[in-house]
Design a protein around this nucleic acid. Structure first.
Length: 297
DNA sequence: CTTCGTTCCTGTACGC
DNA sequence: TGCGTACAGGAACGAA
């Protein structure tokens, strides 16, 4: 699942492949991929064609390619989205050509952008179609539809004290707050669990009871785990195919709790527990991250 | 206003 | 073998 580090790996990987190139044609193969582009797939294609893409930018899990006219191509990878740089044709019969390494990429190809230099094209491939592409106007350098998304913890603009004050005002659990992109962006289920394990806090801990020191610990943990994942993702990324499979990433090996139900905690040896929460899984150590009691501070 | 449950989607794993 | 079900989960949306 692409979270901030995976999206950043994609962003930096795409820089050299798309910056400065002009789009010559757009194929939308599945309209769901452009569902957030209100004016429809044809308008999406029309607004993209002829545009010269600048250096891609990112906030949280959103990625965008500015044009030179205060608009941009905005992308969100959802759960299974990939942006691939590809060579070779996509034959009508659906059989992969030499330039396509994986037949499933072909099957799940949703949008294809070609460039006027005749070089490699840009392909949006997405199995589960939770991701999307759209064209949007920029406001203060950020696509208008993501104006409500908070700065992410790796941005200079991120304000730790403001985040702490927001937590104190909220009446919710810390994990729910970490996943709320309007409070802090870029954190998904995996890094939320990992950061809370590092900070030794239970996912249900009421945000209004957090001390400044604990909030700082959580933020530091988020930054830490993301920086490590980013560092791990920065290697072996020089291939033509900009692959973004968060699930098969090598950072798996560095996870302390996520997906480790019943395996020993790396700090105390207690079996890791799995709770169902928000229709998803939460992993934590029962000893290092005790469930909060009423009135617990 | 805030908070929270539902919904979208498809491939994989697993029990019977 | 095949069928049904649970699960993976980001974020927009609407209800309370």
């Amino acid at each position: 699942m692409p979270e901030l580090p995976e999206v950043e790996v994609v962003r930096s990987g795409l820089e050299r492949w798309v910056a400065g190139r002009t789009i010559s044609s757009v194929e939308v193969l599945h309209s769901r991929a452009t569902r957030r582009h209100g004016a429809g797939p044809a308008d999406f294609a029309a607004r993209l064609t002829g545009q010269r893409l600048e250096v891609p930018r990112r906030r949280g899990k959103y990625l965008w390619f500015p044009f030179d006219d205060d608009a941009a191509l905005l992308a969100h990878l959802g759960m299974s989205g990939q942006l691939l740089v590809g060579e070779g044709e996509l034959p009508e019969d659906g059989r992969p050509s030499a330039g396509t390494s994986d037949p499933s990429e072909l099957k799940h190809l949703r949008v294809r952008l070609s460039f006027d230099d005749g070089g490699p094209d840009l392909r949006f491939v997405d199995q589960r179609t939770f991701g999307h592409l759209m064209v949007d106007d920029l406001a203060n350098g950020v696509p208008a539809v993501i104006a409500h998304i908070a700065a992410d913890p790796l941005e200079d603009a991120f304000d730790g004290e403001a985040f702490f004050q927001a937590l104190r005002r909220r009446h919710t659990g810390i994990k729910r707050a970490l996943l709320d992109q309007s409070l802090i962006s870029g954190v998904g289920n995996i890094y939320a669990d990992e950061a809370l394990w590092r900070a030794e806090l239970h996912w249900a801990r009421p945000t209004e009871t957090l001390t400044r020191a604990q909030a700082t610990r959580v933020i530091d943990a988020v930054r830490e785990v993301m920086a490590e994942a980013l560092k791990a993702g920065g290697t072996s990324f020089d291939s033509l195919y900009v692959n973004v499979n968060g699930e098969s990433g090598y950072f798996d090996r560095s996870l302390n709790v996520y997906g480790r139900r019943d395996e020993p905690c790396n700090r105390c040896g207690t079996p890791i527990r799995r709770d169902s929460f928000m229709n998803r899984s939460s992993y934590s150590c029962p000893v290092c991250q005790p469930r909060p009691r009423r009135g617990h501070f």
